[in-house]
Design a protein around this nucleic acid. Structure first.
Lengths: 223, 223
DNA sequence: TGTACATCAGTGAACGCGCGTTCACTGATGTAC
DNA sequence: TGTACATCAGTGAACGCGCGTTCACTGATGTAC
């Protein structure tokens, strides 16, 4: 156990880590500079030696979120080389898993908690890199004839919209229990992405969903 | 011009309206009970005669947001009766227009600013009604053979995910200028929904998009 | 190797701010008789 | 029609809170000589 020293040694990273932990425990609203400093074991003004203001810390936390997404995607691309639709599905799944396991961190990273994001070059670069990875997967799929042709950046937006919208609505509690009782989140995601691909590479999953009856919704107005 | 009276007459609705206006001007962060009361021209404690606490006012504002979405969708369903894919596209477009024209109100309505939403029955009922409207459109499309068969509630989730994800990413500034320079938001949305439908009812729009070259992205890592 | 000094990470007191909420109250309204 | 009274919408002072940020400072570190 290290003795507490006047100089921390790696306070900047410790503050980012503390911030992510606070997000996990208390959500976006619980994130304050003072709590972050307390959690890192320093006085509440110490962060100002490493960050100009609160937004700068948020920028660092967001950048770390993008880094996580980037690394997961890179790993997926490497592991499923030559299987472009699988890359698409697993990259989407990695995105969703990050969102579900660390939802407040995900929200900070992608829901404009960070203002003036253009001012933070590392954030901008990583966000560009993430998008390029997705474009790359999309182009692989198109080259194999498994995805609609067309400008790959537009198709990448479409893929991203589906996965992002899906997990956002899920996190916001907009999915009815009648759906979640019948299907796993992964099956639902694959069903979504099934709209995008030109061939069905997951016939069993989709057959399972297609065969299931719709849960009887009550008529509107009689609730 | 009405003389200022001790009793307001319709303060509850005036507060909701004031809240929506503050959202439009100052965003989600600017919304406070005190500002809402000030804007409505009453003392800062007057809201407590009509709302138990801040969350209750937020619930009322969110409910109003759902009502707007519901009414727009109803109008679209009525106007395009017998043209199910058109219903799908225009309902999506109405959703996006609300999100773009009143983005903070949209965020409050659909991004879990409201906690414990299940406690507010009117919110729950309207959110159920909105979803049922979408399911209804989806079933019309399926019946006409224009949408993949399968449980209509699952397909409704897929449609909603695409439109919601699309507009969320747009609002969060995640679309690159290289895309927005080439296409209108409406064309991009139609391109997204084009993945969902089994026939292309908007050949001209899609042809316009498909014919456009991808803007040359710089290779990852050389930015 | 030792000393002087610049650098700067971290401290702790203090600031002003806007906020949600409470409380005892006041003034208008409407209804029972 | 007039009077007494209950109701309750709206008031204004006050509360405590956590927050971001500033400032003059202190203590450790490393480097030039």
């Amino acid at each position: 156990m290290p003795v507490k020293k006047y100089h921390h040694g790696d306070l900047k990273n410790a503050l980012i880590k503390a911030g992510i932990e606070i997000l996990a425990k208390e959500g976006v609203h619980g994130l304050s500079l003072r709590k972050v400093a307390l959690k890192a074991g320093v006085s509440h003004t110490a962060p100002y030696s490493h960050f100009a203001d609160k937004q700068s810390l948020i920028a660092a936390i967001s950048t770390e979120g993008l880094r996580i997404i980037c690394e997961h995607t890179e790993e997926v691309i490497r592991r499923y080389r030559g299987k472009p639709v699988r890359q698409l599905i697993e990259a989407g799944w990695a995105y969703i898993q990050f969102a579900l396991s660390d939802s407040a961190h995900f929200k900070v990273t992608l829901s404009s908690v960070l203002e003036r994001e253009k001012d933070y070059s590392e954030y901008v670069e990583l966000s560009y890199k993430c998008f390029s990875q997705l474009v790359c997967i999309v182009e692989n799929c198109q080259a194999a004839g498994l995805l609609r042709p067309g400008p790959s950046d537009v198709e990448a937006i479409n893929v991203w919209s589906i996965v992002h919208g899906f997990v956002s609505l899920y996190l916001e509690g907009q999915f009815y229990h009648t759906i979640l009782e019948r299907f796993t989140v992964r099956d639902l995601m694959i069903s979504s992405l099934g709209h995008i691909t030109l061939v069905d590479l997951t016939p069993r999953t989709y057959a399972r969903i297609a065969a299931s009856p719709r849960y009887a919704l009550q008529p509107v107005g009689t609730i």
